[in-house]
Structure formats: structure tokens, C-alpha cells
Amino acid sequence: MTTGEPLIVLDSVNKWFGPLHVLDDVSLSVGRGEVVVVIGPSGSGKSTLCRTINRLEPINSGTITFDGQPLPAEGKALAKLRSEVGMVFQSFNLFAHKTILENVTLGPLKVRKEKPSVARERGLALLDRVGIANQADKFPAQLSGGQQQRAAIARALAMQPKAMLFDEPTSALDPEMVGEVLDVMTSLARDGMTMVVVTHEMGFARHAANRVIFMADGKLVEDAPPTEFFANPRSERAKDFLSKILTH
């Protein structure tokens, strides 16, 4: 899967929220086309880790490199970097005052200055790909959670990103809608998209991930292929975590 230099590199990243050390000397590299699933107990820093990669959370020390370039601090350069990294949120965050199609074409139109006809065509194709082409003219509040999250994935893909970040994309969904979102993510992974996925879906981690990262208390505790991690977790912390979630 991995070819050439890695796409995302975190080196000795530290972050504090006040006295809380949320990211404790985290180093990680993600290759092109690689799917990395980040798991761990609540408050372990996995969402924060995900959000530092497009600098929605600034870091206190260490370096983050994306596609060979250090993350810009702010301004136009940062906006450009963000346009190359798709992000999917736990609470969807679709623009509530815009239709689904407008949500998907907003980035291409306003950030990339694409022609409306081009943006619209790709937008509709993406909505078709995630299976909600017939919802294009509705507003987000008229869709189910699963449909909204699929629209949010289409919105991120419309920017033709080099990588996709997923911050607990199924945690706010009713159980019967989790599958439809995971199906879209699995097909993305199969198509070779570079993905960092924070999730509690162990099934997805098993079948779609190249690597599983286990975090606890802000530290990156384990980094292993899924088969190895689930069969033989090395750390006590991971064993304890897995025993709690897999026995029910």
C-alpha cells in the first residue's frame, strides 16, 4: 500500500488544554493510500490528534508535515492546506441554510473558483456515489443522520482531497444507520484514499484498516496491523480496553 515518502508525518507533537496533557509526544506517519484507524478510551486524545492534522487544533510543540510541507500557521497557506485535506465530523456540520447540493459545491465554487457547471456535475456524481442523489435539493435537517453524514463525506470529497480525516463519523448515528456510512468509507478505502479514522467501530478497523493506532492518556500506545492488534495486544492498557468492548 505505502509508496514513497509518507503523506502525513507527526513528530513529537505535544498539546496541552490548560494543565491537561492531551497529546504527549506523539509521533506517527501515514503513507499514501494507507488507512489508519485510531482507537482508544474517551479522553485519550484521539479526536484531538485527528484535528491537529488540518490545524483545527493548534499544537504546542513538535512538527506536523503534510505532503512534504510543514503545516502553515495561518492565513491563505493554511486555507489551501485545509482544502487538500477532507474532514468528516461526528456531528456532520452540514451548512444548515444550504441545500445538500449547495453544501457539496460550496468548496469547489468558493475555494477553487470552479465553474458552476463543473462543480455541479461533480457534486451530483458524488451524491450519486454515496447514494443520496435524490436528496440533492433538500436541506440538511430534512435528512436522516446517515444521509447527512454521507452528504458530509461527499462535501469533503468534492474538494478532491489528498487525504480524509474522520472524527468519530458514526458516533452520533442511530445504530441502523452506521452501516450505510461505513460502507461508503470502506469503498473509499478500497479506492486507495489516504484515511485517518477515529472510531469505535472495531469491525471497520478489522476489515478496512492497514494499521490500528491505540491511544491512552494522550500517548500513542500501540501501532500495529489490525489482525495483530486484535489477536495479540501487547500493552496492558490495550488488553484492558479490548476486553471491555469485545466481551459485550
Partner: peptide, 15 residues
């Protein structure tokens, strides 16, 4: 306006 709205906009690359 929920903070997620602005975060999603920034994540798309809007200034």
C-alpha cells in the same frame, strides 16, 4: 450558530 458550522467551513479551506 453552532461552532461546528465555522469549523466545517474552515476545514473546506474557506478563509
Amino acid at each position: 450558530v453552532p461552532t461546528g458550522q465555522a469549523e466545517a467551513a474552515r476545514a473546506l479551506g474557506l478563509t
